[in-house]
Amino acid sequence: MYGGGNTFEHIKSNGLENEDPEKLAQFEARIERGEKIEPNDWMPQLYRKQLIRMIEQHAHSEIIGALPEGTWITRAPGFKRKLALMAKVQDEVGHAQLLYSAAETLGKSREQMIDDLINGKSKYSNIFNYPAFTWADSCFISWLVDAGAIVNQLANARGSYGPYCRALDRICAEESFHLKYGHHCVIHMATGTEKQREMMQAAINRWWPPMMHFFGPSDKISVHSEILMRWKVKMGSNDDMRNQFLDMYVPKIWELGFTIPDENLRKNEVTGRWEYTEPDWEEFKRVINGDGPCNKERLAVRRTAEERGRWVREALLAPKTEYVAPLA
């Protein structure tokens, strides 16, 4: 899973004056034609750096994203839900593996990336810093957080970097299972007992503010980078992604008879855009900087997993093999 709340580094100087102008022109022409850039191709330093940053954050979001839903693995109700949830959370771990691999083709090893995650240097999607109190929270995540992730991932799959796009193609195929499974769970809650409906509504109320944050700060206050758009690193503005999500899923939530805790939420039929109460961006900043309800636990879990796995990896270090970046 993955939010557009990517923290792109503010680009002070793009360093393009140091790049070979002829190669740069070829590179841009290739992207313009809609062709993919492959690891062996020439690319500007800035492109490499921003891609590593973005794909790495995406990968971290998958591995950390496995935790809130993982909360319910041992207690999912019944065989069908249990098998599905296990497979779903497993997929998220698999997505992390695919994405770390894609980032590795750009020259940063997986170990360095995981290191940066657990020492707090790099970010992951904000939404996973919130807790899954009940089974209904897990249903919300599977359906709607994944739906948000799919909006982003489908857009990014049309980006310019070959290995990232290929990873996203595999990921999106699996996400369609997550989305359908999650929707199925929520429908079941909606059409169940009064208690089940109440639980689901409560989960929607809890998760709506972080869901709005998911796509990142509004275009009015976020750092734009025309160059990242031109290079097809960033494929759409945060507000566009948020609007797409609202357009696709708000009607589906309403159709199940649930309410959304924002009285200003409505579609402006003239502009075709959704209007809503401005999300609390101070809260967003606070949580992304470490002060959310679960930041500490999420990182502690990841770090504990790494520490406890240390002796295993040490026992696997073989003098006959050697780390190299993956090929594609």
Binding site: S109, Q112, I114, R310, L317, A318, T321, Y323, V324
Partner: peptide, 9 residues
């Protein structure tokens, strides 16, 4: 979590 313990590819 140094030292780096990256396996082969």
């Amino acid at each position: 979590k140094a030292p780096l313990d990256q396996l082969g590819t």
